[in-house]
């Protein structure tokens, strides 16, 4: 089970689903003949900026080597007053087992809608993030098999990204990649968003080396980063492709953008 998304150090090697075939038969008894999970592939990515958040996901859905469809969004608006979600302020992306992802999204959306109905105001991203963790943890022993990322603007108007494991452990981060190509995209993000392994030229060697100073990236630059990240992932991962759906949360609400990706 852990094989699917693990950032698990016990499973070394790159972490996409096709090279994880166990070499030996599993030990012990199987409890049931029916296996209630599958992996629908795909990848997601979220970056928090100074006054915006971008969450993106490809739109391919797979079963094994088959493409189910070229357009199934993994990124959703949460908690708007209408079914069109025009006035939503929270973005959720889910990748992994699509049916669990859908169920999780609908459950969170219903909860945030009830919150608005009962309190007469929209839920804050922070509160929603905590609630999502509780939902996931509530199914600790039959988890939603998804890597969820939640985002929006915090109470100060700053970009906020929260990422989760399938059982609700979560953390606020600057950026996070999830899903099939997470291991391909995350190091790229570390380098390009948090400037990891970038040093000031001529600052010396060894302890004298100075890290490149971090600065908040503007929206257009982040958008280009997202596009580059996915173009690269599509090149190397067979479960990623077809289309890229981006959602951008700013003080003006959530803007949606679709860009075609390679369909091979």
């Amino acid at each position: 089970m852990a094989a699917m998304f693990s950032q698990n150090p016990l499973m070394n090697g790159p972490n996409y689903s096709f090279n994880q075939t166990p070499t030996a038969a599993a030990a012990g008894n199987k409890e049931h003949a029916f296996y209630p999970y599958t992996d629908n592939g795909g990848s997601t990515l979220a970056i928090a900026g100074e006054d915006f958040t971008i969450i993106a996901g490809d739109t391919r859905s797979t079963s094994g080597y088959n493409i189910n469809t070229r357009y199934q969004p993994k990124v959703f608006k949460i908690g708007g007053t209408t079914s069109s979600q025009d006035d939503a302020n929270i973005i959720l992306s889910v990748v992994g087992f699509a049916a669990d992802g859908e169920a999780l999204k609908e459950r969170l959306d219903a909860i945030v809608k009830m919150y608005r109905y009962q309190h007469g105001k929209p839920m804050s991203v922070k509160a929603c993030a905590q609630r999502l963790s509780t939902i996931l943890y509530g199914k600790r022993f039959f988890p939603y098999y998804v890597h969820a990322i939640l985002g929006g603007l915090d109470e100060e108007g700053k970009g906020a990204v929260y990422s989760y494991d399938p059982v609700g452990s979560y953390e606020r981060e600057q950026c996070r990649a999830g899903g099939a190509a997470a291991s391909l995209i995350m190091p790229f993000l570390d380098n390009q968003v948090n400037f990891k392994n970038q040093y000031m030229p001529g600052s010396g060697v060894g302890h004298d080396l100075q890290e490149r100073e971090r600065k908040p990236l503007p929206l257009v630059e982040v958008e280009a980063l997202v596009k580059d990240a996915f173009d690269s992932a599509v090149e190397r991962h067979i479960e990623v492709g077809d289309g890229l759906l981006m959602m951008m949360a700013t003080k003006n609400g959530i803007e949606e953008k679709y860009i075609p990706l390679k369909r091979d």
Partner: peptide
Amino acid sequence: SADLLGTTFSA
């Protein structure tokens, strides 16, 4: 489409 796992998609 819908299947035994609850997976859905449209094309």
